[in-house]
């Protein structure tokens, strides 16, 4: 099998679902499991799946962990398996992103302690969804049809080195007028992973390495990405007062 930097362990309904969603976004994955029947089922559905003994560190190294793999999803349905796998992978590669699924708050904490980067509790999230449907039906319907329905996307755009945008305040970009995009905020990695919201009133000046978070139709996002990489995006203030 060729090299792919995203792997999914666990090939039940969850693994299948995540692989499908990732494929829709153009991310190709390999699925691994130690259950022969499940792997067979996935292969039949046209997904790339294989059997691996996840308890053997050498086997994990063979499939690229500690080498080229960047993200791993641990989606086994039993918590001990996820925990064991997280510990093994973390020992092999301290920088790899490990996303785990958990079934309760306490198991989430254990997985975080074992070294998971992100723990997702599907039941908690579904419960919140149901509550949102009751509390804010219009908004949920809107988000479901647009953002989650893939008409509108969220994108993170990194400001490249030597960009002319360096030093411009976030508010001068005016992406809502020029691109039909709404700027949610910016992440300045030098200040940590916190998202600085565009409407927080903080006058943030961008510099290279900052990550812009925008929301809007995908074609507009592509247009913005191109403009940023070609460095053809001029801040509005430069145009109005030369």
């Amino acid at each position: 099998m060729g090299r792919r930097d995203t792997l999914i362990f666990g090939s039940g309904a969850l693994g299948h679902e995540v692989a499908m969603q990732l494929a829709e976004r153009g991310i190709q994955v390999y699925l691994y499991s130690n259950d022969l029947d499940e792997v067979g089922g996935l292969l039949a559905k046209g997904l790339q799946a294989a059997i691996v003994n996840y308890m053997d560190d050498d086997k994990l190294r063979e499939i690229g962990i500690g080498n080229w793999v960047k993200t791993v999803f641990c989606l086994f349905s039993d918590e001990p398996k996820n925990l064991f796998l997280t510990l093994s992978i973390r020992a092999l590669d301290p920088n790899l992103k490990i996303v785990c699924v958990c079934e309760s708050t306490s198991s989430g904490e254990r997985l975080m302690a074992a070294g998971a980067t992100k723990v997702i509790d599907p039941y908690e999230i579904s419960g919140q969804r149901v509550h949102e449907l009751i509390a804010r039906p219009y908004l949920v319907e809107m988000l479901e049809n647009t953002v989650f329905g893939k008409h509108i996307d969220i994108a993170e755009i990194e400001i490249p080195e030597h960009s002319t945008l360096s030093g411009t305040p976030l508010s001068d970009l005016q992406l809502d007028r020029r691109f039909n995009l709404i700027t949610i905020g910016v992440v300045d990695l030098e200040l940590g992973n916190q998202l600085i919201f565009s409407n927080s009133g903080v006058a943030h000046c961008m510099d290279a390495g900052d990550i812009l978070v925008v929301i809007g139709p995908s074609q507009e996002i592509t247009r913005l990405k191109r403009a940023v990489s070609e460095d053809s995006l001029e801040p509005i203030s430069n145009i109005t007062d030369p």
Partner: peptide, 23 residues
Amino acid sequence: VAPYEVLGLIAAEYAGQPVAFEA
């Protein structure tokens, strides 16, 4: 509301834009 679908969606979002994901 489909728990697995929601999870898939979130996982995929996470793979796409991890930096500001939480926010």
